[in-house]
Each structure stands twice: as C-alpha cells, then as structure tokens.
Design a protein around this nucleic acid. Structure first.
Lengths: 154, 154
DNA sequence: AATGAAATGTTGGGGTT
DNA sequence: AACCCCAACATTTCATT
C-alpha cells in the first residue's frame, strides 16, 4: 500500500487541519487549502483507502464520563505464557476502562492506559483482570496527574 | 461545569457513535439515536460547551507519516528539579515526534509516547532532548510493537 | 490529478408544543 | 428539552481538461 509516496505536502496540510478539527466541512477544508472541494474530497478518500487515515474520533474528557482517575499499568508476562502475547493483547484491550494498550519490547510486556471512577476501582481492575490471570507475572500502577496528546506538530 | 449530571444515556450513545466515526453527519447520528436532527445538534453543542467533548480528531497511521518506529520513554527527574515539573511537562509535549505526554505519580515522573523514523532518530531524540537536560535523572526507552487505542467500551 | 457544475443531501436557526 | 420547517449551505458524481 502506498503509504509514504502517496503523501505530498497538500495531504499533510489536510491531515493537520483534520487533526485540529475532524468535523470541519470538506468545503471549508478545500477553501483553506486553496483547492476545489471535489479535489479535497478525492484526496481524503484516497487517504482513507490507502490506510493512512484510519478513522475519525472524538476527544472526550474522562471526568465527564465519571472517570475521575487515570492510571498507567505496566504488565509483565510469565516466561511460560509468552506464546499467548497476541491473545493477551486482545483480551486486555477489550477490558472495561482500558483506553489504550501498548505491546512492548523491553522490560515490561504491556502498558495499559486505564480510566476509572476512583482508586477503589483501579485496585479492583488490577486484582480482577491482571493479578488473577496466571499468565501475569507482575504489574506496576502509576497515577496519571496530567495527560496531553494529539497536538503533535508533524 | 456540568460534566457528570449533563450526561444522560442519549449523550453517551451519541459520544459512542462519534467515537466510532467523528465525521458522521448530524442527520445520520440523529436517525440512529431516534431523535430529531435539531435535538441531536443541540446535544452535541451542549457537550462541546460543557467541555465534555474537547474536540474531534483524525487517527493517522504513523507509518504513513514516515514514523516507522514508535517508542515509550519514561523519564525520571532529579529531586532538585521537581519544582519545575509543570514547565518540563510543557517543554516535553512540544518536542517534535512526541504524541502524548503523561505526568505521573509513582516511580517515574513522565512517560512520553514518541513516533519517529527509525532507531537512529529515537536515540537522537533521547540524547538531545532528555539526557542533555540537567533536570533529567534517567530515562528508559521501550519499543512499541503494537498499539491500540480509542476503541474503549465506555 | 484536478476541475466546475448540477443533483442530491445536510445543516442549523427560528418558531412551536 | 424536544420537535418540525426550510433557506442556505455542503457533498459528491461526472464529464472535461
């Protein structure tokens, strides 16, 4: 798939505008880019089709959903369960409260970004979903005081 | 601000639909929710105004942007520089290649999610932006093999 | 690839219950 | 809060370059 070579400067400018506001109308994007609306639409379609654009989503304040506590949980898997990494990844990413899962090479095997109501719930989350699993060797939980993402300058 | 109490079941369903596709038209959202388009629009505006919805963004494949390597870098700050945490946070989140910054309570102080071209670039990133800073006591870099986010079931 | 034009679809403010 | 209306606006297809 043409990921690198299909991306010219106009595509990058388009992605940057969409990063700032994914709900802008095609007409307004086209105007700012100085191209015809139909051209802009064709480019966005091509970016979707090539897989460069995976989707569009909404950034919701976790607190608004009753998630007063955000944490990172690193997970180490037992040597004997290493062959189940793919399966474990899929299980972890389906758990309630899990926002992101990173599958790592290094000391730890997974890092979970979780959002829950309070400290009681994060402890329940770790005990029930992780510690109770025989594949899990160890976990380490860190509180997230502040989190920023999505405003990277490409 | 009314974050918790302004969120009823319909709001949550609306957010879930937008999470799946933030570029869906208001009319299509309203139809699936079984409410009038104007009502749906009013709810979305209210969610934006209350801060529950922070924005809409596009999910771009890092590889399409030439970022063949994704890593997590945890950063420990020297005890003598702890009073500069806020300032450090803002500096880190502005660095080129940084996708997310977590400010943590626990063993490490920050976790950076970075996307760069290759391993040469991640090493340059750490040496130039982190190790060279006198406030930084230690860093630890892990490769990200796989990353999923944004499909959490609220 | 990019364009303009035309048919079709969507938006969002105002007025109403 | 929710609804309907509808003029203004946006989208998308297609023939053309």
């Amino acid at each position: 798939m043409n990921l690198l070579h299909g991306l010219d400067g106009m595509d990058r400018r388009l992605l940057e505008l969409l990063r700032q506001d994914a709900r802008r109308t095609n007409a307004s994007l086209a105007e700012e880019l100085g191209i015809a609306a139909s051209t802009c639409l064709a480019r966005l379609k091509a970016l979707r089709a090539s897989g460069a654009v995976r989707g569009f989503t909404v950034d919701v304040d976790p607190a608004a959903l009753g998630h007063g506590l955000v944490a990172l949980v690193s997970v180490r898997i037992r040597p004997g369960a290493r062959h189940r990494m793919e399966e474990l990844f899929d299980r972890l990413r389906g758990l309630s409260g899990v926002q992101q899962v990173f599958f790592l090479g290094g000391e730890d095997d997974f890092l979970l970004h979780v959002a829950v109501a309070d400290s009681e719930e994060v402890s329940r989350f770790v005990l029930k979903n992780l510690s109770a699993d025989p594949a899990v060797a160890a976990t380490r939980t860190s509180l997230v005081f502040r989190h920023e993402g999505g405003e990277r300058p490409w």
